[in-house]
Design a binder for these strands. Structure first.
Length: 415
DNA sequence: CGTCCACAGGAATGACGGGCGG
DNA sequence: CCGCCCGTCATTCCTGTGGACG
């Protein structure tokens, strides 16, 4: 792992060639860019550094558990510290291996393990082996290499929620079976309630040390943006107030630095597109909308057919002034839509699951309500504007033609 | 205060396409 | 090429439940 070093001069030339009047180097605003200094995270960096330091003298550092919401700098700080650690270890000729895995992106136990194996130079086939087998190979390789390994499991909560804590359990126990290898685990979680899902044994082992990342406050975000904008924008392209606005907007949204940086970058891009010399407030407002819209469009486009049909059902119900419909009704409409397309109908259980997935993606809102005597169900309503859905679905070969369909089952009732 | 609706949502299981070792 | 295991998506069966109604 290494910090991304970007050739600043090269970027200036590049921007000049492209005639940008706004950006010096927009890559600095990307959230995977790690600056040389992380404002307002000195404390966390020092703590993590301090906990990991013993590895330089050959002993196993404690496992660390790190929490904090998205965009609070967890990943950046960890990468930053590990980068320094690796450099130092080379300096003093101590071997340390570091492996960073994003569990949400890896997705499964198997792929997490295979990445861990890869980091110690052990090639594991993409698929085809039993998880236990991979684990044995991993242990064997660790034993023979005798190098301490620091594993970072980013977004580990996503893995546990989807797969259970079996892998984590095995990993925490791994040192007991090894004579020479030493493995430290650094778990990063976005979800504060995540601890409750863990086996107490795993929890106590994993959180020998805990580090909490609080959300950034508006002034802190401002400092971050200030620092980056010096590298990212040409002089004079940012008038005062823009940074304040971006940090205020992002602070309102859980103090998410990622969001703040996105806002600033997109606002800059919009200003650039307008041929302006500097970013205006309205660009930031537009950026706010554009980010959200792009996200939704992306989500809608990649939805599988049946999810689209369910969503289309909710869309039609809203169109018929039946917003806040319940699971059973959505299912009825969905069945009709399947019928129209000659597609097989999924079970209500499955559709209920799809509704939850759509809810998590933020395209609809579904919350459980109880009508007492008249049952307990989910109230479902559209979470995005109808026009966005229409714009995306109209081009869809399957769903497009359903946008004007009037479901029969809606005619018999009214809201 | 118990009943009972209309589901929620967990668990077990299966079908399927894909990839690997042998 | 076979047999095995993978992950994904779905079905089936199931137990659980908030609260208005009686």
């Amino acid at each position: 792992m290494s910090l991304e070093r970007i050739d600043l001069l090269d970027n200036i030339f590049e921007s000049f060639l492209q005639g940008s009047r706004i950006f010096k180097n927009r890559d600095v605003l990307r959230h995977d860019f790690i600056p040389a200094y992380l404002p307002h995270r000195e404390e966390q960096a020092q703590r993590i550094g301090g906990i990991l330091a013993p590895v330089l003298r050959g002993s196993k550092p404690s496992n660390i558990f790190i929490y904090g919401k998205t965009g609070t700098g967890k990943t950046a700080v960890v990468k930053y510290v590990l980068d320094k650690l690796v450099r130092k270890s080379r300096e003093v000729h101590v071997s340390v291996e570091v492996c960073y895995v994003n569990c949400r992106i890896a997705g499964t136990d198997y792929r997490v393990l295979s990445q861990l194996c890869g980091s110690i130079g052990l090639h594991i086939p993409f698929t085809g082996l039993a998880v236990g087998e991979v684990f044995d190979r991993f242990k064997e390789a660790l034993e023979s290499k005798r190098i301490p390994l620091i594993t970072v499991l980013d977004e580990v909560d996503a893995l546990i929620k989807a797969r259970g804590d079996a892998v984590l359990y095995e990993l925490t126990r791994i040192n007991e079976n090894l004579k020479f290898g030493r493995v430290s685990i650094l778990g990063i979680s976005n979800d504060l309630r995540f601890k409750e899902l863990l086996d107490p044994r795993v929890l106590s082992s994993l959180s020998e040390e805990e580090v909490v990342f609080r959300p950034y406050s508006a002034p802190e975000l401002r400092d971050i943006l200030q620092q980056r904008s010096k590298l990212a924008f040409l002089d004079g392209a940012l008038v005062g107030g823009i940074i304040n606005l971006c940090s205020a907007l992002a602070a309102a949204e859980h103090g998410d630095a990622r969001r703040a940086l996105d806002l600033l970058r997109v606002a800059g891009e919009l200003a650039e597109r307008d041929g302006e010399r500097y970013v205006k407030e309205e660009h930031v407002r537009q950026a706010q909308e554009k980010i959200e819209q792009d996200r939704v469009v992306e989500v809608l486009n990649t939805l599988p057919l049946h999810s689209k049909l369910v969503l289309c059902g909710v869309y039609l119900m809203k169109k018929a002034n039946l917003n806040g419909s319940i699971t059973g009704d959505v299912f009825e409409v969905y069945k009709e839509l399947c019928d129209q397309l000659g597609v097989e109908v999924l079970t209500q259980r499955r559709v209920s699951g799809l509704i939850n997935e759509l809810d998590i993606m933020g395209v609809i809102t579904a919350r459980v309500v109880s009508f007492g005597r008249y049952g307990r169900t989910k109230k479902v309503s559209l979470g995005v504007s109808r026009s966005v859905i229409r714009d995306v679905f109209i081009d869809d070969n399957w769903v497009g033609r359903l946008l004007n369909y009037a479901p029969k089952c809606l005619k018999t009732k009214s809201s």
